[in-house]
Amino acid sequence: DIIVVALYDYEAIHHEDLSFQKGDQMVVLEESGEWWKARSLATRKEGYIPSNYVARVDS
């Protein structure tokens, strides 16, 4: 799995977006363009995230 960590807070604009806080970790489910589908490890919610707001966690 690709794990990313939030670099900034993000408040969902559309209902399919995923809100998150700086430091939150998410599993990337699908990478396509600038918006990635991800699942929050904390809340288990899924939605689209702006890929420029996150960084990959080296395992």
Score class of each variant (00 low, 15 high):
His14Ser: 12
Val54Ala: 03
Leu18Gly: 01
Asp24Gly: 02
Asp9Tyr: 04
Leu41Arg: 05
Glu16Val: 08
Leu7Gln: 05
His15Ala: 15
Val5Lys: 05
Leu41Ser: 05
Leu29Ser: 05
Asp9Arg: 05
Asp1Pro: 14
His15Asp: 15
Lys45His: 09
Ala55Arg: 13
His15Trp: 13
Ser40Lys: 11
Val28Gly: 01
Gln21Glu: 09
Lys45Asn: 09
Asp58Cys: 13
Tyr10Ile: 02
Leu7Arg: 05
Ser51Glu: 04
Val54Tyr: 02
Val27Pro: 00
Glu46Trp: 07
Pro50Phe: 07
Lys22Asn: 04
Ile49Gly: 00
Met26Ile: 06
Gly33Tyr: 05
Lys45Gly: 07
Val4Lys: 01
Arg39Met: 11
Glu16Tyr: 14
Val54Pro: 01
Lys22Ala: 11
Glu46Thr: 12
Leu41Thr: 07
His14Trp: 10
Asp17Cys: 14
Val4Asn: 00
Val5Ile: 13
Ala55Met: 14
Ile13Lys: 13
Met26Glu: 00
Tyr48Pro: 00
Gly33Pro: 05
Glu46Val: 13
Ile3Trp: 08
Gln21Asp: 06
Glu46Lys: 05
Lys22Met: 08
Val4Ala: 05
Ser32Glu: 11
Asp24Lys: 01
Val5His: 05
Arg56Leu: 11
Glu34Phe: 15
Trp36Ser: 06
Lys37Tyr: 15
Arg44Ser: 14
Glu30Tyr: 10
Val27Thr: 07
Tyr53Asp: 02
Tyr10Thr: 01
Trp35Gln: 07
Glu31Arg: 14
Gln25Asn: 08
Asp1Gln: 14
Tyr10Ser: 02
Glu46Gly: 03
Tyr10Gln: 01
Pro50Glu: 02
Glu11Thr: 14
Glu30Lys: 09
Asp9Pro: 07
Glu11Phe: 11
Ser40Gly: 04
Asp9Gln: 05
Ile13Ser: 10
Gly33Ala: 06
Asp9Val: 04
Glu34Ser: 13
Gln21Val: 11
Ser19Tyr: 04
Glu16His: 15
Ile49Ala: 01
Tyr53Lys: 08
Val5Asn: 03
Val57Tyr: 10
Lys37Gln: 07
Gln25Phe: 15
Ala42Lys: 14
Gln21Leu: 12
Ser40Thr: 07
Glu31His: 15
Val27Ala: 08
Gly47Tyr: 01
Leu41Val: 10
Glu34Gly: 10
Ser32Pro: 05
Val57Ala: 09
Ala42Thr: 12
Ala12Gln: 05
Ser40Trp: 02
Ala42Gln: 10
Val54Cys: 06
Val54Leu: 04
Asn52Tyr: 10
Asp58Thr: 13
Glu34Ile: 13
Glu31Phe: 15
Asp17Ala: 12
Ile49Thr: 00
Asp1Thr: 13
Tyr53Glu: 01
Glu11Ser: 10
His15Leu: 13
Glu46His: 06
Ser19Cys: 06
